[in-house]
């Protein structure tokens, strides 16, 4: 199948409407869950759902656009982290593609992989653009690590991974559970979903 045909197949109309809804899920749930004040954001739940149903490229685009759109309508600072959201989608999609989202415990492993992958991008952005701080409580840890002689880079590694680990594992589990619970008639419209549902 040629690239153009593959692209058309991967980005069918229903995939597009899924992605649009997923972008909204990311933004709305990110807002709602932040009110619960847990170490969980759920602002990439839509991205991971797209990863499971439509593959890594659709998910990467979903993540990217989520942050760009959020930057456009509310907080331009979020646009700086668009590459991170892209990596989340890519990593989740690749995990699904290679069979790492079939069982619940695999979803947990995928969550860890996603965390590590996103850190590779998030840490340089944090360090070079934002001087390593987030404006949140995690900065206490960064400060402590700096004070004990770490360089900025290593100090930030701990906070970024720590911040994201629980959230990404919960997100991966939740997405897995939801896709497993979707009616067959719906998932049949997404060829790539078979990597998870079968």
């Amino acid at each position: 199948m040629s690239l153009k045909e593959q692209l058309k197949k991967d980005f069918s109309t229903i995939t597009l409407t899924l992605m649009a809804v997923a972008i909204v899920l990311n933004i709305v749930l990110g807002q709602v869950v932040s009110l619960l004040k847990l170490p969980i954001f759920l602002d990439s739940i839509g991205t991971v759902l797209v990863a499971l149903l439509a593959g890594p490229w659709a998910a990467a685009l979903t993540g990217l656009l989520t942050n760009l759109i959020w930057g456009l309508i509310s907080d331009p600072v979020a646009a700086a982290f668009a590459p991170v959201a892209l990596i989340i989608g890519l990593a989740a999609g690749l995990c699904a593609k290679y069979g790492l989202f079939k069982k619940w415990w695999q979803a947990i492993i995928s969550g860890v992989i996603i965390t590590l992958a996103l850190s590779i991008i998030a840490i340089p952005i944090r360090v070079y653009m934002f001087g390593g701080v987030t404006g949140s409580g995690a900065d206490f840890i960064t400060a402590y690590l700096l004070a004990t002689g770490r360089d900025l880079f290593s100090a930030v590694i701990v906070t970024v991974i720590g911040d994201n680990l629980i959230d990404k594992v919960v997100t991966a589990l939740l997405a897995w559970g939801i896709v497993k619970g979707l009616p067959k008639r719906f998932t049949a419209r997404f060829p790539r979903a078979s990597a998870v549902t079968e």
Binding site: I14, V24, L25, R189
Partner: peptide, 19 residues
């Protein structure tokens, strides 16, 4: 979170047909 996500996904199909 779960009911919200499910209901949003139900819409996905009808939206794609309308398009």
């Amino acid at each position: 979170v779960a009911p919200f996500i499910f209901s949003a996904l139900v819409d996905v199909e009808e939206r794609s047909l309308a398009l």
